[in-house]
Simulated scan of single mutants.
Amino acid sequence: MKKSLIISVLSSAFLLLAFSGQSHAQDRYSNTELGIILGEPTGISLKMWQSDQTAFDAGFAWSFGGSGSVHIHSDYLRHNWLDSETGGLALYYGLGARVRLADDARLGVRIPVGLQFNIPDTRLATFFEVAPLLDLIPETTFDVNGGLGIRIFI
């Protein structure tokens, strides 16, 4: 189930990126993005740019794993723009924290890696990411989150 979800998310992301044009990294409408992420977890996604290479993101979502739970995360991200002329596609990576609120609440570390594409001539950005998780409290466990999303610059 998890393998097929990750494969579906990655395939969808590459299709979205393949059929999108190009835009400049510095052509952002604003420094704040708000949207949705679909996958594990599914919910609201917020991104606040600090520069053309750095941003903070946060998610408030529902995790479908186990009996279901609320998932809250925040990450510090670094971006490497892959097309030096237009800068519309960025590979990003970072470090953050995740809290899962359920009967067996967990606190852990996230290491997100993803791609973001700023759609030209719009206020929209698409992204997909995979985030390995290392839960530290109440016990040490390993898991992986992943999702595909779209945000609008507000």
Rank of each mutant, 00 (worst) to 15 (best):
G94W: 00
V109L: 14
L107W: 08
L77K: 08
T126A: 14
L101V: 14
F117R: 15
L91M: 03
L101I: 14
A102N: 09
N118Q: 11
L89I: 10
P112Q: 10
A97F: 12
R123L: 09
I119H: 06
D83R: 10
G114R: 01
L77Y: 03
R98W: 04
N118C: 05
H79M: 12
L77W: 04
A102C: 08
G96S: 08
L124F: 14
Y76E: 03
L91A: 12
V109C: 04
I119T: 13
T122F: 05
G96I: 07
L91S: 04
A97E: 03
P112A: 03
Y93C: 05
G114A: 08
D83M: 05
D83Y: 00
A102R: 00
T122E: 11
L77P: 11
I119Y: 12
Y93V: 03
V99P: 02
D121I: 02
Y76R: 09
R100F: 07
Y93N: 09
N80E: 15
A125E: 11
A102Q: 07
T86L: 07
L77N: 02
Y76G: 08
D75T: 05
F127Q: 01
N118F: 10
R100N: 14
P120C: 04
Q116V: 15
G88D: 02
L91D: 07
Y76T: 08
I111A: 15
H79D: 02
H79S: 14
A105R: 07
I119C: 01
D75R: 02
R110S: 12
A90F: 01
L89V: 10
Q116R: 15
T86Q: 11
W81C: 00
T126S: 10
A97W: 00
G94D: 04
F117M: 14
R110V: 10
N80Y: 13
P120E: 06
E85A: 15
R100V: 15
V113F: 12
D75H: 05
I111E: 08
L107E: 02
N118K: 13
T126V: 14
D83N: 15
R123I: 09
L124C: 00
F117N: 13
E85T: 14
G96M: 05
R98T: 14
A105Q: 06
L107A: 12
T86M: 14
R78L: 15
L89R: 12
T126N: 10
L107G: 07
Q116E: 15
D121Q: 14
T122S: 15
D83V: 05
L95G: 14
L91C: 10
G88W: 03
V99M: 11
V109N: 00
L101G: 06
S84C: 01
Y93K: 07
A105T: 10
L124S: 05
G88F: 00
A97T: 11
I119N: 05
L77I: 02
F127T: 07
G114W: 02
H79L: 09
R123W: 03
T86D: 11
L91R: 05
G96Y: 01
D103K: 11
L101H: 01
H79T: 03
T86N: 15
Y93L: 02
H79G: 06
G94C: 02
R78Q: 14
T122D: 01
I119E: 02
T126E: 08
L124K: 01
Y93T: 07
I111G: 03
L124G: 09
T86F: 09
P112I: 06
D83E: 03
T86Y: 12
V109R: 03
L124E: 06
